[in-house]
Design a protein around this nucleic acid. Sequence first.
DNA 1: TTGACATGCAAGTGACGGCTTGCATATAGT
DNA 2: ACTATATGCAAGCCGTCACTTGCATGTCAA
Lengths: 94, 94
Amino acid sequence: MADVFKALSDETRRLILDELAAGDGKTLFEICSLLAGKHGVGSTRQAISQHLAVLESAGLVTTERRGRSKFHFFDSEPLAAIIRRWPIAEKGMP
Amino acid sequence: MADVFKALSDETRRLILDELAAGDGKTLFEICSLLAGKHGVGSTRQAISQHLAVLESAGLVTTERRGRSKFHFFDSEPLAAIIRRWPIAEKGMP
DNA sequence: TTGACATGCAAGTGACGGCTTGCATATAGT
DNA sequence: ACTATATGCAAGCCGTCACTTGCATGTCAA
């Protein structure tokens, strides 16, 4: 569980999760392009690769190799574990 | 939103949240005792105080002064913001 | 007021994290 | 085989973070 929060404590990694949640099966280069274009992230490809590795070892991202490409998928199960640990108070609706 | 994950990326702070979620309105010394007793946390009082400050500035903990004591309360709203950002997949039940 | 209790502030240290740089590996196409 | 494509590995730099130490502030009771 520690890995999940460590992974999510970085803004770039949260943006990556946003992109994967908006449409799975993206490759490393696609993510680099999306981050640079839509969010102005200027990191290099290696930096993004390391971010993806962190997300994967936290269980937030699963991967699948096809040929020379590696596709990344968002997995929400670790987030479900969070809301299982601490109760979420109901929003009062008057 | 960044502050929330930064705050939760530390194990001691997560344990503090556990204690507050299990029963609100605890004081600094109470939390120190609980962490030392139940979880074997050997940090000093000042360390715990700094942790509480981080949790408070992240919105996960609210405080209320009464006399010379300061009581801490768990607030789950930032966690609700997390599950609003990323969709949680339904558990498959065949 | 004096003393004991509960918390706050600030500087210094050691370690971890994110980023870059450079090279290496593997696959697809011609 | 050769080249371009797509990713992987490793070392190094620099900033941030958690923790400690020491002193200061504020509050209640006698």
